[in-house]
Amino acid sequence: MAVAGPEIARVLAPGGILAGLWNVMDDQVEWVAGLARVSGSPAIGPRDTPANWRTETADMHLPKTGAAARFGSPEQAEFPHGQHRTAGSLVATLATLAGMLVMPEEEREATLGRIRTYLADRPETAHGEFTLPMLTSVLRVRRL
């Protein structure tokens, strides 16, 4: 927002609304929270689960100084949904997250191995297709 904020504030008319959407895994579900713990923060980043998204997103994207001070208080909401997955498809997706891509190869393979083992041991995910609990998290703010 430090770079984009002044430009957004310049082009967005007063009273206009800026909104952002993030799809995150619902870590309020116990097995998803366990997946995040097993994966570690470099693998599943700060905006990949709602507990982290709630605490970091508004301040990160809408700081209270500079150009961003031209925006009102942010509103946040979450909308639940699910994705049909298999353990293999979930591991393949997690392997593409930025935190995973920048890991050294040995660390990445160890992390993916922990994730595979975790998913194989969970009754929710061990047998075929399952629904991955997700939330679409929305941040909305009005231009002052």
Rank of each mutant, 00 (worst) to 15 (best):
V3C: 10
G5Q: 05
I8E: 03
A9S: 06
V11M: 01
A13C: 01
A13W: 06
A13Y: 01
P14E: 11
P14L: 14
G15W: 00
G16N: 00
G16Q: 05
G16M: 05
I17H: 12
A19V: 06
L21G: 08
W22V: 14
W22A: 15
N23P: 01
M25V: 02
M25R: 12
E30T: 13
E30R: 13
W31Q: 09
V32T: 02
V32A: 05
V32C: 03
G34S: 01
G34H: 03
A36C: 08
R37D: 15
V38D: 02
V38G: 05
V38H: 02
G40W: 03
A43Y: 07
G45V: 08
G45T: 08
G45W: 04
R47M: 15
D48I: 03
D48K: 03
A51W: 05
W53V: 05
R54C: 02
R54V: 00
T55L: 12
T55P: 05
E56C: 14
A58Y: 04
D59C: 14
D59M: 14
M60L: 15
M60I: 13
M60H: 15
M60Q: 14
L62D: 09
P63Y: 08
A67C: 11
A67E: 06
A68F: 14
G72C: 12
P74L: 04
E75Q: 14
E75R: 15
Q76G: 06
Q76H: 09
A77R: 13
E78T: 14
F79D: 01
P80N: 00
H81R: 01
G82T: 07
G82P: 00
Q83I: 08
Q83Y: 13
T86A: 04
S89G: 03
L90D: 01
V91P: 02
V91T: 07
A92G: 04
T93Y: 13
L94S: 10
A98M: 12
A98Q: 13
L101P: 09
L101M: 14
E105K: 13
R108C: 02
R108D: 01
T111F: 10
T111Q: 08
L112H: 07
R114D: 08
I115L: 05
D121T: 12
R122G: 00
P123M: 01
P123S: 02
T125S: 11
H127E: 11
G128Y: 08
T131F: 12
M134Q: 06
M134T: 06
T136W: 09
S137G: 07
V138C: 08
R140V: 15
R142D: 09
R143P: 11
L144D: 14
L144Q: 12
L144E: 15
